[in-house]
Every structure is written in C-alpha cells, then in structure tokens.
C-alpha cells in the first residue's frame, strides 16, 4: 500500500450528508502522486460529491481531507487560493463559460491568477488548446459552436491552463462516441506523462479504466469499498463489484479472458 508520504490526496473518515440523506460515512482514500486513479460507483453514490469536497466546493460534515499535505478545510482564503492554483478541475460536459471563446476560456484562470502580458497569455493558452488536440480554427469559437467531444477537450485545456499537479475529471468520456472516448483516454494518458500529472477521474467507462487507470477505487455503501488495480478488482467478491466488473459490458471491454480467469 501507499506510504503516507507519497499520497498527494489523503481523505480520512469523511462524512457528508444532505439533510437526512447520508452520502458518505467513514470514507478513506489515498491518491498517490503521479498516478491515474479511476473512481467508479453506481449513479448517485456520491462520486461527484466526493470530488467537490476534495476541491473545496462542498464542506464535509466531518473528517479530514489533505491535498499536498495541507488540509483543504482549515486553510485561510489566501492559502486556499495558492492551493487551488495547483489543481485543475474539469466538470461534466466541460462547464465552459459560454460567453467566452475556447481560448478565452483557457485564458480565464491565467487572467484571474497571474499578471501576464496579453500576448504572452494568448500564446500560452493557444498552446494548451493545441495540446488537447483541438484544431486551430476552434480557438476562436464559442462553446455552443463545438461538438460535445470538442467541448470536453476545451474543458480539459482549461483544467490544465495553469500546469496543475492534479487534475480532477468528472466523467470525461461520458456521452462521447467510442472513438472519441478512446482518443480522449489517449489524450489524458499522454498529457499525464508529459506534464507529470496526477489524475483523479470519475468515470463509468470500463474502457478508460482498463486503458489508462493505474488504480481503481470503488465507491459503495457510503465509503470506498475497494482500491486497487483492475486485476485486483476482478478478484473482489462483493455483489456490486462483481456485477460491475463481470457484467456483459465489462466482458466486452476487458476481453473474456480477464473475467473468466476468476469467474
């Protein structure tokens, strides 16, 4: 298991409820520096809520969340701002600012956090837009003029605008066609190794899990039920986990051998 010092994100005893509806209780999770971790779980098990708590958009009821060894909850606004610069978040469907062009969207965090000359900022934003594989003519388009896949790429470009150490991705390949999703997986993998990113990825896409995730964390019963590599997941004996990793879709994604050897 991870030594404490190489976990970049550390969640301990997290509790979160909305009214009487308890979403997380006693949730622990470690994310190691430089890995791609995939978070899976049924719809409504609180994957997005977990992500939002880690990045400080939601306040946990109890528990500790440390990112870069600092508690996200107990920071002063100034420290939080410094901390926030070191991660990037990509929301489901990109959450781009619809009144800004793609490049302006990528410039937005730079404009907010740094004082750069205009032309330098535009150049750097342009590089990020190209890096995520958007064509040159997409730079000055508005989000509504892009396809869903392009919007996701643009959202990813905005998430990596400030060269973060961690990127949080909420269902990055949901709603993409299989080719687009595979391309997006490759893109995440490439940029992860080029920029040395740690990637925290909520996903339902078994192909992504298989193709790029170093480890998988399963969210069920209000906590992280299991963490490990795909191979380890296949050996876990829990109804939901079995159903998930041994179902017909899993078989298709992983190939029959992978599921049969334990099944």
């Amino acid at each position: 298991m991870a030594r404490d010092d190489d976990s970049i994100i550390k969640v301990r005893g997290l509790k979160k409820s909305f009214g009487t509806h308890v979403v997380h209780e006693g949730l622990d999770l470690d994310v190691r520096r430089g890995e791609i971790i995939g978070i899976v779980g049924g719809s409504g098990t609180g994957k997005s809520v977990l992500l939002q708590q880690i990045v400080g958009l939601l306040k946990p009821d109890a528990g500790r969340i440390e990112v870069f060894g600092e508690s996200v909850r107990d920071t002063s606004p100034d420290e939080y701002r410094r901390l926030r610069r070191r991660w990037g978040v990509m929301f489901q469907d990109g959450a781009l600012f619809s009144s800004l062009t793609v490049r302006q969207n990528v410039e937005a965090p730079m404009r907010e956090q740094l004082h750069l000359p205009d032309d330098l900022r535009e150049t750097l934003a342009g590089i990020k837009v190209r890096m995520v594989g958007l064509p040159e003519n997409a730079q000055d388009k508005y989000p509504s003029e892009l396809s869903g896949g392009m919007r996701k790429r643009a959202g990813f470009a905005r998430a990596i605008a400030l060269d973060p150490e961690i990127v949080f991705l909420d269902e990055p390949t949901a709603g993409l066609d299989p080719i687009g999703a595979a391309a997006f997986d490759r893109l995440i993998g490439q940029l992860q190794s080029a920029l040395g990113l740690t990637v925290f990825m909520v996903t339902h896409d078994l192909d992504s899990l298989h193709a790029i995730c170093d480890r998988v964390a399963v969210l069920a019963e209000k906590r992280v039920l299991a963490v490990g590599t795909m191979a380890e997941m296949l050996k876990i004996d829990h109804p939901w986990v079995r159903e998930y990793f041994h179902g017909p879709r899993a078989r298709a994604a992983l190939g029959p051998d992978a599921t049969d050897e334990v099944g």
Binding site: D119, E122, T123, G126, I127, R130, M131, E136, Q190, L191, S193, A194, L195, G196
Partner: peptide, 17 residues
C-alpha cells in the same frame, strides 16, 4: 517530455499576433 509536448503544439510561426 514537456519540451516535446510543447514543441508539437507551438503557435504557427508566421501567424501575426
């Protein structure tokens, strides 16, 4: 790695600002 990634995505040279 970073240099390679960026060099493939440099702004076109002759593009005016």
């Amino acid at each position: 790695q970073i240099l390679d990634a960026v060099s493939q995505n440099m702004p076109p040279e002759d593009s005016p600002p």
